[in-house]
């Protein structure tokens, strides 16, 4: 392997790593705020990518029906759980976020999809369809289990993952899709060819990381999420309901998942179940970070991407095995070293 091949592999690795980093950050966020290990994160990637692919072909994506259905279930779940204390204003708010919003998104999509709108509009529609599924799924599957152990929440997460994968097959079929790159430009840096698409991925990832940083450091809502993560009871004692923090965390997870799907779809063919594998690599990064540290998760994700790229060159048939093997020394080190993440309280 000479330097130029190494540089190409490195570039590939860093670009994939950027996507894994987004997913890893999202997994850390959801776990610290809600204690849910969000296995279905990857489904948001496939749903995002495939929804965009359908919009690109001028078809109305069936995910809008899923969005409507999840909204209805979420609304029913919330009204049922709060049946004793619900105020009229709260019911109106629920109807707004869970019924009116998805209905509006679905209507706009049905209107615009056949007209093949510009790419920016397609992407905006995709994000609008997929993002709200995050909080709806939280209200449906996880909020009723708020007091359950991490293990029960994990089992629920696996259930949601299996259900969404099946629905993905129904909506998108077994065939994969790939979307057009946002940019077909190519730049030459020394001996290295850099595609416009890879610059897009790096740029969007950097912007999203910066925006998340600003959200957590500068806004009171962001600080409320951190407060819930460091001391759930303390947050409740100042009126920060875990259900509110969790819904925000799941909204961010839905958005990050859908955006990752949009970014990754021009790079590789995405099938209804591809997202799981991509999400799992973000999960490896999150585990290396002890499901606790954002910077370590980001750095680990880049490492995962680079290891994957190098492995695919030297031992392509063992590429996935090598990537997932990284987790074992980390687990050993975490078991025998000082534990970073405390098991939740009882």
């Amino acid at each position: 392997m000479d330097l130029s091949i190494f540089l190409i592999l490195l570039q590939d690795g860093v670009i994939n790593g950027a996507i894994y980093a987004l997913l890893g950050l999202s997994l850390v966020l959801v776990f610290t705020v809600t204690r849910v290990i969000f296995i279905p994160q990857g489904e948001f990637v496939s749903f995002g990518a495939l929804t965009l692919a359908l919009l690109e072909r001028g078809q109305t994506p069936a995910t809008i029906w899923l969005l409507l259905a999840l909204g209805v279930v979420s609304a029913v779940a919330q009204v049922w759980q709060g049946r004793r204390t619900l105020s009229a204003r709260r019911v109106l708010a629920i109807a707004g976020t869970d019924l009116a919003l998805p209905a509006a998104v679905a209507a706009v999509t049905m209107l615009l999809a056949p007209m093949k709108p510009p790419v920016a509009v397609q992407i905006a529609l995709t994000l609008a369809i997929i993002t709200p599924m995050g909080p709806y799924i939280y209200r449906m599957a996880f909020q009723p289990l708020a007091e359950a152990s991490t293990l029960v929440l994990l089992i629920a997460a696996i259930g949601v993952h299996l259900a969404l994968t099946g629905l993905g097959l129904v909506f998108f079929g077994a065939e994969g899709s790939r979307t057009e790159p946002f940019s077909s430009a190519m730049f030459e840096i020394g001996s290295l060819l850099v595609s416009g698409q890879s610059l897009w991925i790096m740029g969007v990832t950097a912007a999203l990381v910066a925006a998340l940083g600003a959200f957590f450091e500068l806004t009171l809502t962001g600080k409320a999420l951190r407060a819930t993560a460091v001391n759930r009871l303390g947050a409740r004692l100042v009126g920060i309901a875990p259900s509110m923090s969790s819904a925000i965390a799941f909204t961010l997870a839905g958005f990050i998942g859908a955006l990752s799907g949009v970014l990754v779809s021009p790079l590789t063919t995405i099938y209804y179940d591809t997202g799981f594998l991509i999400g799992l690599k973000g999960f490896v990064a999150a585990i290396i970070a002890g499901l606790a540290s954002y910077p370590i998760a980001g750095a680990a994700a880049i490492l995962v991407g680079v290891v994957e790229a190098l492995a695919s060159f030297w031992a392509s048939s063992f590429k996935e095995v090598i990537v997932f093997l990284i987790i074992i020394p980390v687990l050993l080190w975490r078991t025998w070293g000082a534990p970073v993440v405390e098991e939740d309280d009882h």
Binding site: L220, K223, R226, V230, G234, A235, G239, I240
Partner: peptide, 21 residues
């Protein structure tokens, strides 16, 4: 005490007013 240990004093206080945000 149930404080937010990894946040500064002022953020802890600011979060006490979250309901009036």
């Amino acid at each position: 005490r149930e404080l937010f240990a990894s946040l500064p004093v002022e953020d802890n206080l600011a979060l006490g007013r979250f309901r009036f945000r």
